[in-house]
Design a protein around this nucleic acid. Structure first.
Lengths: 230, 230
DNA sequence: GGCGCTATTATGTGCATACATATTAATCCT
DNA sequence: AGGATTAATATGTATGCACATAATAGCGCC
């Protein structure tokens, strides 16, 4: 007899969902019944079904029970490593070049993105990440010195702003927007690609509670793909 | 006295990570100690820390204990709705137009992506998704009729292949690649944008166990952004 | 009939305990 | 020493129980 684990219960539940034994839109037996049927404790069933619900494969509501959603909104998990690790994870040599470091008034779109007061100045960083000495990603970053005062003294020739902030700035929340944009003349120069080339871009803002820490736009060299699994 | 929940334990752990009370690279007290200190059961601490480890904020290993990673690989969760829900979730009217439906030999890159035998034919779908009657996303899809025989009879004028497959095909795994590409002449026609415009693209393959179900490339109209939170 | 209260019910969570498992540290043997 | 065996230990998981909480369904009242 093989032992019953929450994973085996989950696998069985998955099988029933996929085989349509539990049809889309339909209610499934409740935890206590399943526990009895499968010969395990309700907590074990709970763990299995809770995980499936988190992945979007089941919908659970108190009293209403558990059902298979008609249109499952699947959840994919994205790993967000620092760029150096992204490059090294591809088996390539990482390089890094600081292009610009300045303290100025940000453009209006950055100001509104970070919900800043009109005259707040930010530190502006432009840096190029390299893979095997080839341009990999252009980092255009604005950092709020009020949120991370030590950043002003950081030595960004040795370590990228990306890495410094991950290691030194405590943050609580952030959001991402992935998109495509045409390479500006400046970006094309740095990324060594034609002006107007389609670039995969990641825009990211980071917050410590209500305090904006940083807004960054990463433009990846043509051909870059970001991968995720379901 | 406020009750202790696994969420409150998790919040306290997060606070200690962020305040560097538990410094990066450092070991944290083990579960039993934390449970005693916080006045709860070890299972409660376990639940709290396990969730943090899943989010990439802690590293746990049996016997070795739990530590705060030096370079946390944060995990972001992406919702992958069907395209109709994506459009409707933006408060826009959804529309859909089937452009092409054919059964042919796939190009070599699709064949190798899906690990097909040389002479295997696939169903080829080209469809346009609309938001407020404007082009939203171009869907270029190849479906393996061996994996979903009923697909051949599906009425794709009423429901998109995207939606039909989500509702009717059991699948177990899949992967995504996000990137940017220049609009081909044909894509530009359908998406009503200049040829060569930068398009955000999602490539996706789907599998039922070892059987390939479908490979799809979604090209979104210029300006589209996919959002995620951390 | 329609509104609001209440009882019921399925999931959510906490706890104490026991044992499993992975991994390290210690020890023993050669 | 050095390699293999063994003990120790932190996390992982199963269980039975209790109670919390949300949401529905049913009832009574007007």
């Amino acid at each position: 007899m093989t032992a019953i684990t929450w994973q085996s219960v989950q696998a069985e539940a998955l099988r029933r969902i996929r085989s349509r034994e539990w049809p889309p839109g339909g209610q499934i037996p409740h935890e206590a019944d399943l526990a009895e049927e499968l010969g395990c404790a309700r907590a074990t069933v709970n763990r299995a079904l809770r995980d499936l619900a988190e992945a979007g494969l089941l919908e659970r509501r108190r009293k209403a029970g558990t059902r298979v959603p008609l249109n499952p909104v699947r959840k994919a998990t994205l790993d967000i490593p620092i760029i150096r690790q992204d490059v090294e994870g591809r088996g390539q040599a990482y390089g890094y070049r600081l292009i610009l470091r300045d303290t100025t008034l940000p453009p209006p779109e950055i100001r509104s993105l970070l919900k800043l007061k009109p005259k707040q100045t930010l530190i502006h960083i432009l840096a190029l990440h390299l893979a095997e000495a080839m341009p990999f990603c252009l980092e255009d970053r604005w950092v709020n010195p009020d949120a991370v005062p030590e950043f002003a003294d950081a030595d960004l020739s040795a370590i990228s702003a990306n890495e410094w902030l991950v290691q030194n700035a405590a943050f609580s929340a952030g959001d991402f927007a992935f998109g495509a944009s045409a390479a500006t003349a400046e970006a094309a120069t740095h990324l060594n690609c034609p002006s107007g080339a389609p670039l995969f871009t990641v825009e990211r803002t980071t917050w410590a509670a209500a305090l904006p820490i940083t807004a960054v736009c990463l433009s990846y060299a043509p051909g870059y793909k970001m991968r995720a699994e379901i």
